[in-house]
Nucleic acid binder design. Structure first.
Lengths: 234, 234
DNA sequence: GCCCTAGGTGTACGCCGTACACCATTCTCT
DNA sequence: AGAGAATGGTGTACGGCGTACACCTAGGGC
């Protein structure tokens, strides 16, 4: 038997192969449908074989996030902190947009992997070398929150979704007048500046720039949290 | 038999009782440990009994969110849009802080319940009556994102968590210099303006005010998305 | 030839959500 | 008053999940 056994034993399965297969499978079937058993089947292997490469499903998810983070461009050096940070964040956004499950997964992790930590370190570094104090940098990082990774966390993309329960749209229009007004304006925006409904990329950059501009103002005026005692006892 | 059967049949189990019990149980044991079976046991009932009141677990989660939203104060009328919005959002935050699982759950819902929609409607209304155009209100709501509900979505509260793998803290300090600098500053902040580590409430209000101030500036200068064509073909 | 180890296997357990058939009580209509 | 339907709790069962544990097998170093 020159050809060993059947046709299997093609490549001996590594942690990296497991993670990449998991990412691809999650891209295909969605993160909630991803299971150790399906992943094993995809790799032509018995479920328990995976446990020789990742210690459990949590660590699998951590590893999957790391794979996605690996797709972020390296930091492009630049003279100006704002454009440097902006580019890095938009690059992260690009990576996460390619794997819609990843945003949800990274938010569910309880502690960052070294890869995530390295990314955060690079962003913090951009603020520090851009002239932000440690104090201001700290608050600014909090203010960015998950947006630092290009993650928007809108609530609900589609507003109501045809909930077949109460009366049809006529009553709805009366119940949520402002929502309807806004939804209406966004809907027939064909001839407006943003084509087709709602441009997620525009919304992201709008919010990001609003924050970055705010940061710049605070930096320029030498803001410090010491100037903002909010009536706390000392 | 004056007392019926045993001692049971205390209250006949309603949708409301189910939801409230679910909220309490999730508060106790965490959302990931909440199961239909445990909830049933908590209510002294067989698991399938729940399905007479909620059609499935998804709808249970929707209902739980609605219970939490019910704890938000009614909108306090006020002359000034910023303080009105601010109070409403901070009130929502208070409600969500009481149920740490709720932020995660609401972000996982695919479409808003009527209760959530009503809340969003009230916030949109505050911007509109405060002098914001439909256009600007739209973008402003996106920029708030989940912060509109008082939800921060920081990534990771505790930075590294003693990952017992590579060498101890000495190497870490070299690998993530900016993270360490920032963590150090936050840690021994006992005598600084923010006591004990990191004041989540302060961070939330810092970011919220940064956004609200930015909104106000745009409103005053009559901002419109038409003035910000980002090099798109018309 | 020997043993060690890395990596794949098979079985099994306890948990999960929920479909479906059943039954007990209570309410309504005649 | 009695029939019938509706309401709501029960019991059983199924398929899927993560993973502990014992096992086997192929390859490498001595």
């Amino acid at each position: 038997m020159a050809q060993q056994t059947e046709a299997v034993r093609r490549t001996p399965l590594t942690r990296d192969r497991v993670l990449r297969a998991a990412v691809a499978l999650a891209d295909d079937i969605g993160i909630e449908a991803l299971s150790m058993r399906k992943l094993a089947k995809e790799l032509g292997v018995v479920p328990m074989a995976l446990y020789k490469h990742v210690s459990n499903k949590e660590q699998l998810l951590d590893g999957m996030v790391d794979v996605v983070m690996g797709e972020i461009d390296p930091p492009a050096p630049g003279s100006n902190w704002k454009s440097t940070v902006r580019h890095r964040i938009l690059s992260a956004r690009r990576a996460f947009l390619g794997h819609p499950w990843a945003a949800q997964v990274i938010q569910s992790r309880s502690s960052p992997t070294p890869v995530v930590l390295a990314y955060m370190d690079s962003v913090i570094g951009m603020f520090r070398t851009g002239g932000f104090s440690v104090d201001l940098t700290h608050h600014v990082m909090h203010a960015l929150g998950s947006r630092m990774m290009g993650i928007t966390q809108e609530l609900f993309d589609a507003p109501p979704a045809p909930r077949a329960q109460t009366a049809p749209s006529q009553e709805d229009a009366g119940e949520y007048p402002y929502v309807m007004e806004l939804a209406g304006a966004v809907a027939h925006d064909e001839d407006s500046v943003l084509g087709r409904g709602c441009d997620d990329q525009f919304e992201f950059e709008f919010a990001l720039d609003l924050l970055l501009d705010g940061f710049e103002r605070l930096r320029q005026q030498g803001w410090s949290s010491a100037g903002h005692l909010r009536g706390k006892t000392p």
